[in-house]
Design a protein around this nucleic acid. Structure first.
Lengths: 343, 343
DNA sequence: ACAAAAACTTTACGCGCGAAAAGTTCTTTG
DNA sequence: CAAAGAACTTTTCGCGCGTAAAGTTTTTGT
């Protein structure tokens, strides 16, 4: 990297002794030029630091190397963690991921989709808000931009959906809880934002029926994305009424459970699998913080890596096949039971 | 939004009955055209949905409307929360924020700076890794791009630094703890990643000296950004050795405290301000989860809103004054003590 | 009402690159 | 070793918009 400033590809082509169209080809795909040519270009790259103008590049290309990643709520460490993996995979594959969070608001989600259009992305990895999503807006977006959904499935939208198998989550926790103690009551929000919640409730009812236990669904009030606080308030209420049919609570997700456990602690209700404990609590997701609750939370873990890898791979396949797949793909990964101290 | 598709500004100018240069001016700043003209353009905008090509726009403009937001670790809800506010402020001011996370790695931080350069951002809001940051790379970046640092101060780098006053954090917690019980030991990582940690330790020493108590700094081992686990391991070790000089621990930050509290629970050590409790624990940051620890965490809160607002405002001032300020500005906001159950 | 100022139109050019066509040089293969 | 094909060069065009200059219309102030 000598001092000489290179303004554009024309000049860089000159100093590298290669014609501009070939240099252009090289930047589009280094493997597409002869090895000797590649070496000459890369030698020049070491002497002068030049990078193609990203705006000029994308201006005429029908297909950019941009990839959009949209999550419903970035302040949830669960999504932050998934995003980290997705980002890395995209970068390694030579794409430029851009990160967006809807922050729990439909209006923002729509704005993001709008803005994303003008980035002409090669593809989009999209975890929608769920119930709050504007289905028609998303449908319109998916018509224009190759999109792979993850985490929340919106029926029929996007080229594919990659997620976790909610039935696998619930069947494992319910099986474990019924085998080792009283059958669980299901603890969830009355109006869950996420379609996974509904699938989990149904799976709970199915499992309880199959095992011959009476199901009990406890619905707590609250709206928004502050699940911990909702779980805490709901927990305080339930514990106050002191009318639980069994001593075991299965939470729809870990964030509710985190709130619930804090309510239990506050009320002096001991939680755990020890005989003297008054309550057992289990949950689903293996949230990054579930390891540090008191007691540590027994839960069913997503296969983060498999979901991330598969979502990215699927998107790449969509992109390579020109943006459309023959038919919509749905891939679900099973959960893994994480036994800790709370149940 | 009738069906007619508008390809470019030329066509849009035609249907709106205004010349293209004026339309261009409008999109650059709607206030810069006559009210009657603005109305005609906006009327046309409602009939046909047209948006200027973002790549073509940025191609020749010396100054884009892009703003980069870089944080060291997005899976930390603390940063996720700050980012949310920063994003919104930028959007409201008519800028396009783009979000980046270094995921705790120097190499990634440098890659982000590199990539950001080619986006020709009007400005950058940058919370650096801290100790792990490549100072010279950042210095070079700041020479090219107007940058405002936040959270972690790197001496002399960037046009300004906006953050929290660590002395205010520590003086309030130390004052409170010494007033209401035994003086605190300071619980921190041996090699903290963040310069705030060093300032907090110094403030602790100063305060203890001023109040006439003997300081005790407990340094725990561990590297990386998994602070909770580090705090937990450190806590287990400290509790096992059972050689604490006082019954009060003041953690450098909440994430360590979250791990420490989980260790206490695991060891059956009761924490809180009740007389029968064996330990008091307090901390700094008011992490979004500190409300839900067991017991809930007494801590000193950042003025999130003030830091965010001021960082954005400062960056806008830098941008408006052509990218450089006369002198480097440092703004610190005081903390607010949040009394909960742990101390 | 009139001059000055402000806002607009017309015209023209350039940004940095993608892409296509036609011609040239190099590499492979039987 | 000739022929085919791959890779390269040269040339040319266009993308969509920013921007500047020069001329025209509208608004503003006294």
């Amino acid at each position: 990297m000598s001092g000489s400033k290179i303004k554009n590809m024309e000049e860089f082509a000159a100093v590298s002794g290669i014609s501009r169209p070939t240099v252009s080809k090289y930047f589009h795909d280094p493997e597409s030029v002869r090895a000797s040519t590649r070496q000459r270009i890369e030698a020049a790259l070491e002497r002068h630091d030049y990078r193609p103008n990203i705006f000029a590049m994308n201006q005429n290309r029908k297909l950019t190397k941009n990839i959009g990643i949209i999550v419903p709520y970035l302040a949830d460490p669960f999504f932050a963690e998934i995003v980290r993996v997705l980002e890395r995979r995209c970068i390694d594959a030579g794409f430029s991921p851009t990160l967006f969070s809807a922050h729990g608001e439909q209006a923002l989600e729509n704005d993001i989709l709008d803005g994303l259009r003008s980035l002409k992305p090669a593809g989009v990895l999209f975890a929608p808000l769920g119930r709050l999503s504007d289905k028609s807006a998303i449908e319109a977006f998916c018509r224009d931009v190759p999109t792979v959904l993850f985490d929340s499935n919106l029926e029929g939208l996007g080229e594919a959906f990659i997620g976790s198998d909610n039935h696998s989550f619930v069947s494992q926790t319910v099986e474990y809880l019924t085998r080792t103690g009283e059958p669980p009551c299901f603890f969830e929000m009355r109006h869950p934002a996420n379609p996974n919640a509904n699938k989990r409730r149904k799976a709970y009812l199915t499992m309880m029926d199959r095992l011959g236990f009476e199901p009990h669904v406890i619905k707590i009030d609250g709206t928004g994305w502050g699940f911990e606080e909702i779980g805490r308030q709901g927990g305080l209420k339930v514990l106050h009424e002191d009318a639980l049919p069994t001593n075991t609570l299965l939470c729809s997700n870990d964030r509710l459970a985190i709130g619930l456990l804090s309510a239990c602690y506050e009320m002096g209700v001991e939680v755990g699998r020890k005989p003297e404990a008054r309550l057992r609590v289990a949950s689903h997701d293996d949230h990054p913080f579930s390891r540090f609750t008191c007691p540590s939370l027994t839960t069913a873990a997503h296969d983060y890596a498999a979901v991330s890898d598969n979502a990215v791979d699927t998107l790449f396949r969509v992109v390579e096949s020109g943006g459309r797949l023959g038919e919509r793909i749905e891939t679900l990964f099973p959960a893994r039971l994480i036994m800790r101290e709370s149940a």
